[in-house]
Amino acid sequence: MPSATSARRYTVAGKRAAAKISPPPAWADAIFDVLKEADIEQVGYVPDAGHTRLIDLCLADNAIRAILLTTEEEGVALLLGAWAGGQRGCLLMQSSGVGNCINMLSLAQECRYPFLMLVTMRGDWGEFNPWQVPMGQSTQTALESAGVIVQNVDDAKDVAETVHAAAALAFGSYRPVAVLIGQRIIGFKDWRKK
């Protein structure tokens, strides 16, 4: 298990200036260390505020290809191709993106390839925007109905361990596994700032 406070390497080795990398949370850095330890080489993403730091770290790493997607379902197909070609991947998204993936997740269930999803939650804890609530509240049920193993984390200190275990399960058992990172960890959006 990597430490959330271990020294950052990307500032020296990265493709981009450290100044362009958004500030921590430490849990995002800890996830990045877990992805490196798990030999993840392709990271598909649709941006979410909660994943800002992790996306920046992936973009800055020379051994990871961070792949911008137009919709989350593209990532399910991308990672089938990646694993067919011998690379491990993971997919970063917001909970609303889970709904975009449902039919495509049949690939992961039918073909039995390791598929790791890291989902930052909206519509979950202290949500202000009512339009986020329907998908946020059905995220776990939707994933489970599509055959994805779901693991929740709601405390920042547990994030790295949970992602580490989820990666071990996904790549060890060749199955789709999603980690739902609770909105309590991310912090809810302060609408007064606008």
Binding site: Q42, G75, V76, L80, G81, W83, A84, Q87
Partner: peptide, 22 residues
């Protein structure tokens, strides 16, 4: 040959993941 029998809309992205890996 990697045949897809489902996941309509998947083929091009599956090709991308494979092309990047190989």
């Amino acid at each position: 040959n990697l045949y897809l029998w489902g996941g309509m809309g998947a083929a091009a992205m599956c090709g991308l993941g494979l092309a990047l890996a190989q």
